[in-house]
Amino acid sequence: MLVDTRWSAWNEEIQVQVTEGAALGPAVALVGSVIAGAEAACSLQRGDAEIHAVNLAQGLPVRVSVRLARLLRSALWVARMTDGAVSPLAVDDSQSGVPSIHPVPTFADVQIDDDTVLAPWGASFDIAGIAKADTADRAAALVAHELECGVLVRVGFDVATAGHCPAGGWQVQVPGNGAVELPTGSAFATAGTDVTFAGHDPVGGEWEQVSVMAEDALWAHGSAAASLRRGVGAMTWLEQQELAARLVDRDRRVYTTCGWSHPHAA
């Protein structure tokens, strides 16, 4: 029997669904703890967030917690996998129009050595979107391991699953298009131009909405966000990545990759 609950945290709707009724309370506590820790590490809306120390360092090395280092590594991994289409860096353009004596920094200039982060001068991190997807993955894995049940964790538009699968699979909503069946251990994310996604402002372009199934929420999130920025090349790129995806263009026409024709995706 599936039971679930929802609440708001980190400016998102959180959903936890488990296959054992007795596990719901402990699952909510575990998920809430993981979310609170990640938010404290990297939310730019919190004055006490650890990431501010990194952003203020401007070219100097900073020691960070294991938690923040892990989130930053996840963000850099997505940047590499998307060839920079989804970058964790926001370049300081407060002096636009004034020639800079420094080269424009990129994610490739960031170094993380154990618990020490070195970011180039003129850049700051904004990893909230990526961190939320990564947090969904970690929370789902923790619940499944600790409580030995099947679990679905949704943080905003990012969905992760773990543990044993309920009969009929996990039913996940596709915004504006009903639901799809998500096998356990897989993930789902939707990016849209009408929402803030991947820690950045809405992006204009070819696509109105992109939904992606992947092995984890981190990659589903990153590939969906990257597709918004790739424009007409998104379909080819998604096929090369062998991802199941559904794309809606500005005229509301729907396109799907070969993987989306799987019977679990409706």
Rank of each mutant, 00 (worst) to 15 (best):
S96G: 13
V110A: 07
V117R: 00
D92E: 10
F107D: 12
V151D: 11
D158S: 05
V172W: 08
V91A: 13
T135N: 09
S94N: 14
P105D: 12
A141E: 12
L118P: 10
S94Y: 07
A90D: 15
T135G: 08
A140D: 08
D134K: 00
D134H: 01
F157S: 08
D134P: 00
E146V: 07
F157A: 12
G163V: 01
G97I: 10
I127W: 00
A144L: 12
V117M: 08
V98Y: 12
A136V: 11
G163K: 02
E148N: 11
D158H: 04
D115Y: 05
T161G: 08
L142T: 13
D114N: 13
L147I: 03
L147Q: 13
A139E: 03
A123D: 06
G122T: 01
S96D: 13
A144G: 05
L152T: 15
S100H: 14
F157D: 14
P99G: 02
T116Q: 14
F157Y: 08
T106W: 00
V104C: 14
A136S: 14
E146R: 14
W121D: 11
G122Q: 05
E146N: 07
R138A: 05
V172H: 12
T106H: 04
W170A: 07
F157C: 08
D134F: 01
V159L: 04
G129M: 03
P103K: 06
P120M: 05
H102L: 12
Q111T: 07
I101D: 14
G150Y: 06
L152E: 08
H164N: 11
A123H: 05
H102N: 14
D126V: 00
I130F: 01
G156W: 11
A133L: 04
E146I: 01
G97T: 05
I101W: 13
V110W: 10
G168K: 06
H164T: 09
A123C: 03
G168A: 12
S94A: 06
I112M: 01
A136H: 10
P103R: 10
D126N: 04
G129Y: 02
G150C: 07
D113G: 08
V110I: 08
P105W: 08
A144W: 03
G169I: 10
H102Y: 15
D126Y: 06
G150R: 05
V143G: 09
A108C: 08
P105Q: 02
D93M: 07
D137N: 12
A160N: 09
G156A: 03
A140V: 08
H145L: 11
V155E: 06
V117E: 01
A160F: 09
V155C: 03
E146T: 14
I130T: 06
S96K: 14
D109M: 09
D158N: 12
D92S: 03
A160H: 04
A119H: 02
C165I: 10
L142D: 11
A90G: 13
D137F: 00
A128F: 13
W121L: 12
W121H: 09
Q95D: 15
G129S: 05
A167C: 01
W121S: 03
Q171F: 03
A162Q: 08
F125P: 00
R154Q: 15
D113I: 04
A90F: 06
R154L: 11
D92Y: 09
